[in-house]
């Protein structure tokens, strides 16, 4: 019989640390949005990268994906992100086309 907390290998300290990092990243996002330091497209990219980092922290630490076996970890993440990558590549190309071909 395994001890689940031992398998997950995390302590209260780790969770607090992750929680703090998530709050901090949220604050950074809000500040970026307010200061408008970047153009909209660039800002979108930065925000999305930060969000992916946050999502990664949540899945890896809070959802314990880090402690699952590599086969499960990789199959799940690759299949889902692969689908998103495909949508990203092919959807937005057509959204962009509306800017030039759209009926004014």
């Amino acid at each position: 019989m395994h001890d689940v907390s031992a398998v997950h290998g995390e302590s209260k300290g780790t969770y607090l640390w992750v929680w703090g990092a998530l709050l901090l990243l949220t604050a950074v996002e809000v500040v970026l949005a307010y200061k408008q330091v970047l153009q909209p497209v660039r800002m979108l990219e930065v925000l999305l990268v930060l969000s992916v980092v946050k999502a990664g922290l949540i899945t890896m630490y809070f959802m314990h994906l880090k402690s699952e076996i590599p086969r499960m970890r990789w199959l799940l993440t690759i299949s889902v992100t692969g689908c998103f990558a495909l949508m990203w590549i092919f959807f937005f190309r057509d959204a962009d086309r509306i800017l030039t071909l759209g009926v004014k």
Binding site: A33, P40, L44, L47, L48, K54, A55, I58, F62, M63
Partner: peptide, 25 residues
């Protein structure tokens, strides 16, 4: 818990896209 964290995770994308990208400065 897995379900709950996932709901949290989704918000991590909705918040910047829906709110922060429509911020009035």
């Amino acid at each position: 818990g897995l379900y709950w964290h996932f709901v949290d995770l989704v918000w991590m994308f909705i918040f910047p896209l829906v709110y922060l990208m429509s911020t009035k400065v």
